[in-house]
Amino acid sequence: MIGIKASPPPSAMRARITGTQSVMKIHIIEDDWGVRDALVELVRELGYTVLAFGDGESFLQADMPAPDDLVLVDLGLPGISGVDVIKRLKRLPAPPHVVAISGQPRAQIERSMRDLRGDSGVRLLRKPLVSEAITALL
């Protein structure tokens, strides 16, 4: 399911997440310091464990997320692109939930996301983000 619209997550996904909330981790890959830090503050305030990365390389070197984890990936990363990170995650035997975030213009996002056609379950949030969009994922 690739869509630009921030539709609510499928109910199945939500059920699974709430069922394992205590161990679920949130991985944030965002190169902009301010956005990354604000996401960390918000998600931590919501009571989740957060792992934050400034680029795709350092994220891929760390431990891979568990199937119930949520990964927020900025599409416009320096170095390895957000799309490439998502592709790597989708190749995992049990991929985590992935949400792409982007402040790029729609046309550019569509170009990036076209690359992901065939991968399901990647949703997109456009910046500016609001906390409701994040909490809806949890």
Binding site: A38, L42, G76, G103, L129, V130, S131
Partner: peptide, 25 residues
Amino acid sequence: GSAIAHELNQPLTAIILYLQAVERE
């Protein structure tokens, strides 16, 4: 233009999230 919009989006996103985090707290 669109690059500038993106560049402004970053701090705006951060501001919104910070304020909402504080609000929740």
